[in-house]
């Protein structure tokens, strides 16, 4: 399927940009006339992925997060990428309730929420180099 529309944004890995990123992704898909529920799903998944980049990727230090959204027909692909610490054990990180930072009051639900709210998720990570989270959402007519 060819690409109908694409956008890329790069922003500082700051917690205040979590809301910027989710609103940005939501605005990008409005062309599909999505339901309120679908918009909520996308916003929540983006918020989780960007929060992971800020807290775990860069451990609240300076860095850059890149978000790319691609629309092909009624399928949305969102890619969120950081150049941070990376994940040693992706399977463990994706386990429900697992958190590497319990002192930060994290619920360990981030990846579980992304999996539940989207129609597909792939995680690529290289320790010391960064993480890419790729999510897919299909919007029904």
């Amino acid at each position: 399927m060819g690409i109908d529309n694409e956008m890329k944004v790069t922003f500082s890995a700051k917690s205040e940009n979590e809301s910027f990123a989710r609103v940005c992704a939501a605005a990008f898909v409005t062309v599909l006339n999505p339901t309120v529920g679908d918009i909520e799903d996308v916003k929540t998944a983006v918020s989780e992925a960007v929060t992971n980049a800020v807290i775990h990727g860069y451990e609240n230090t300076e860095g850059v997060v890149r978000m790319r959204c691609v629309l092909s027909g009624r399928e949305l692909m969102i890619e969120i990428e950081d150049d941070g610490a990376g994940i040693e054990n992706i399977a463990l990180a994706m386990e429900p309730l697992y958190t590497s930072r319990p002192e930060l009051e994290r619920s360990g639900m981030g990846f579980t929420v992304m999996e539940a709210f989207m129609d597909g998720i792939e995680v690529e990570s290289s320790p010391g180099h960064g993480t890419t989270v790729r999510m897919k959402k299909i919007f029904n007519t």
Partner: peptide, 13 residues
């Protein structure tokens, strides 16, 4: 208007 899993962490706290 919006809550992600950080809200769950906040409640647990």
């Amino acid at each position: 208007s919006f809550m992600d899993s950080s809200g769950i962490g906040m409640l647990m706290g």
